[in-house]
Design a protein around this nucleic acid. Structure first.
Lengths: 329, 329
DNA sequence: TTGACAAATGACACCGGTGTCATTATAATA
DNA sequence: TATTATAATGACACCGGTGTCATTTGTCAA
């Protein structure tokens, strides 16, 4: 059934032109040194015969697939949301996303590498991922890292130091002096928060700095630890919205109210964070902007394969909702 | 820099064989009527020269890209989670996913069609999506719909009637007789719930059946309506976990406690639903299973392009958490 | 040793584009 | 009108595989 798709040759026959000529006209109708009549003719034929170029053939000659591999761990909606935004941004620039999420339940590193190899086989023009590993480099394929800062690759990341500083300043402005923090340590945010706290002359209680998983259950466990302290902080800075949602649940189970008994300030601004109880006050990763930045870096890398690696950081706007209490009023 | 990738010809030169021969050996080392020595030789060369086949070239001749388009609306983590699971399932069968999420904020239908055309240009072998539209058919490309039932395409969907029946039965078992429901009507679930309620001799209060958006804000608004009723139901069946999370927030804002003042039974079992307050009692869509089913349908369709359309439905296990109160105890 | 037959390999056209260079048509100039 | 510059178009090899068919090599029986 499925009739054979129209090719350049079909158009050429229809127009009494050569295949090559038709190709040129279709690729660049503007300045392709073809007569107006020819352009018109080809345009009609394209319409009439429903011509659509064969991507495989094009990729074969141009050595460009216009596909970008998107590699993230299959852990939670953070990476899902990011991936979607990335897809949208890349689509705007003519790229299609090849997604590949790796399973983290058993040997994540190996799963990551397998996924990378799988995508590499598809001859993608570049890869966007979030975690730098040795197997990524030297494979002749541009890599862009989102979310973290490294030396030997292009990267795009939120300014974590700025986050740390502003998070503390915001809490202080709201009258908080007993501040804790939880995330996956070591981390720039962790450092920045401590430094800013010192600068603000706040006492640092080591009990309130809890390292662990950056997923929901990590936040859940961290909050349990906090709630078991004889002296509790008035505010916690969580390194992700998922952690915050876990913390929220732990607090709720202990009859501890947020933000009345303890405030939570977070990081990400996921879609769902406007529907937590209470809705989260959080720094917005602004995925659309980050995604667009990645697209820019990508295009730049394609055009200048030998240019030095670039780093882009962006500041996160604070979204004030209801999880932080104003102690001064 | 980036050295030219190894081709079949390179292997052939290295082994003193012809390109065609090498191709055959690589494609099918087992029964390719090549001498053991040749196979050995080629295998070594592949290793040594790090040969990886060129997908574009292969696609050009075989007319198979082994790519599947995944088309979903960019609305919330429901489709993100589903997409990821789909990718994992398809990858197991050698397919790579081309994701394309369409923007629903302005003219969703047009955005949907654009995204479809964009993916179609990539010569995908098939498309998986969730919403049937006329522009999908007759384009010579297999389409599989997830989540809803249609006649003229392959589809895979949870058994919504079964959900409706069991949801009511479960609530009745827990002592609930005043039951409402909210979702995007009309819907099989809506029908099934009403019928089962009649069968159970429950009174149907039209005020408690609220149609609207199936996203979070839809649930939020529905719950606001419910809370404004002079006589409230003891339990609401929400058509999605996102709706449920919106409903949870609305209830919280009104000082109405879940499940003590009102129970919520839901549909999806998203990752995040174990961290809502309270964690949701919900029917599990079991994405991994659904995704695997889709992969099966897809493979079947590829092998038998002319076979009649298939429908697969599956039952959803109930995940009991804390959002439904047992009134009998 | 020759012939017959199967096993192993090679030659080559093709898939649908791209890009270079040669060729032809058209217009401008001498 | 012949000459030349320039605008349009055509011819063709190539990208890296696949698949068909022809050819060579090896094995064994006559």
């Amino acid at each position: 059934m499925m009739k054979k798709p129209t090719t350049l040759q079909d158009i050429a026959d229809y127009c009494n032109l050569s295949k090559g000529m038709v190709g040129k006209v279709i690729r660049n109708p503007e300045q392709c040194k073809a007569s107006a009549r020819t352009r018109q003719l080809v345009a009609e034929a394209v319409q009439k015969l429903d011509y659509r170029p064969n991507f495989a053939a094009k990729a074969l000659t141009t050595r460009r697939t216009y596909c970008v591999g998107i590699l993230f761990p299959a852990v939670n909606s953070f990476y899902y949301e990011l991936g979607i935004k990335l897809d949208v941004a890349l689509a705007r620039h003519g790229y299609t996303s090849l997604f590949a999420y790796w399973d983290v339940s058993r040997n994540p590193l190996q799963a990551y590498q397998e996924v990378f190899e799988r995508i590499r086989l598809r001859n993608v023009d570049a890869v966007v991922t979030c975690q730098h590993e040795p197997f990524l480099i030297g494979k002749g394929i541009p890599v862009i890292i989102y979310g973290n800062e490294y030396q030997d690759v292009d990267c795009v990341f939120p300014n974590k130091k700025d986050f740390g500083v502003r998070a503390v300043q915001y809490l202080v402005k709201k009258g908080h002096r007993d501040i804790g923090c939880s995330g996956h340590f070591p981390d720039i945010r962790y450092q920045a928060i401590r430094e800013e706290m010192k600068r603000q002359d706040l006492e640092i209680n080591e009990e309130w700095f809890i390292g662990g998983s950056s997923y929901s259950h990590g936040g859940y466990e961290a909050m349990q630890r906090i709630l078991s302290c004889r002296h509790r902080p008035t505010a916690m800075i969580m390194h992700s919205d998922h952690m915050a949602s876990g913390a929220l649940l732990a607090a709720h189970e202990h009859g501890c109210r947020v933000p009345d008994d303890i405030s939570i300030l977070s990081y990400d601004n996921l879609n769902e964070s406007q529907y937590t109880i209470p809705p989260l006050t959080t720094f917005d990763q602004d995925f659309p902007q980050g995604a667009e930045l990645i697209a820019q870096v990508l295009l730049n890398r394609m055009d200048n394969p030998e240019s030095p690696f670039r780093k882009y950081s962006f500041k996160m706007p604070l979204i004030e909702r209801l999880s932080v209490k104003d102690l001064t009023s």
